[in-house]
Amino acid sequence: MADLSLVPFILTVSAASLPLLLAATGELVVERSGVLNLGLEGMMLVGAVCGFIVQVEFGVSVLSLGAAWASGMLMAGLFGILALGLRTNQVATGLALTIFGTGLSALAGADYVGRTVEPLSRLGFPGADRFGWLGVFEQTFLFWFAVVMLLLVHVFLFRTRPGLVLRAVGESHDAAHALGYGVVRWRFGALLFGGGMSGLAGAYISLSYTPLWSEGLTAGRGWIALALVVFAAWVPWRLLLGTLLFGAISVLELYGQGLGIGVAPHFLAMLPYLATVAALALISGSVSGRRRRLEAPGSLARPFSPPG
């Protein structure tokens, strides 16, 4: 109970939410284009290990973030070749990507377990020490990047013509194809963006959140990010709400132990997952009430094969 002042609490929550927000923003764009990439966890892990290795070897954080972005994109490209090019089942391919990424990151990072790096520096504010609450805004570059990206994604999807096309591709690929838009090309682009964002999300964990590398570092955050996209009903600003909520729940687990809540920590640790299930049930609505279900992109997870 000692230091439960608001500023550190908010900082902890935002730190826990940030990887979810980054990954989920990318996945939201991907799913809006009609592709379900379940490989988030794998892409995040590969991004995390690549970012960490570059940081250990070169010590330039811009370089390591770039490496994380690029490695995430490579993984997403692999998914794209299979799911879009060879029209494989997206669920299975995404799972394969996660399993593959878990193994690959473990192999690549084997020599780096136990090494530490300087955490990403926080961008300070002049006068932040005078007004204590301004400390809330002392965040890493990635925090501001995530916030800006969320805004950009919102503007892109709902205020620009390419965003409209992307949504059209996701709603009905046959109609978009009939209008002459390259469905596969749009989806591939969205996938690459999602991959880059996941890579960054992973790198944030390995470079700032827990500045070290260990096998399976992301601990299921990729899956939570996936659930968050559903939770947000594919609307960017609700994503912010969802990530903060989930960040807060996962922090509650840490604080719960300190506060001496009479519940085994295991049950608090279950909370984010149970909350996701509950959110899924609430968001999806009843089977008979079809109105709310229509919010999902119409062509989600359906492989596209052009006619003719």
């Binding site: 794998g42 394969a96 990507l97 996660t98 399993i99 593959f100 990424g101 878990t102 193994g103 690959l104 473990a106 192999l107 084997a110 096998e215 399976g216």
Partner: peptide, 10 residues
């Protein structure tokens, strides 16, 4: 590392 099995499975 043991997790390398994942590479082959993937």
């Amino acid at each position: 590392p043991h997790a390398a099995a994942g590479i082959f499975q993937g």
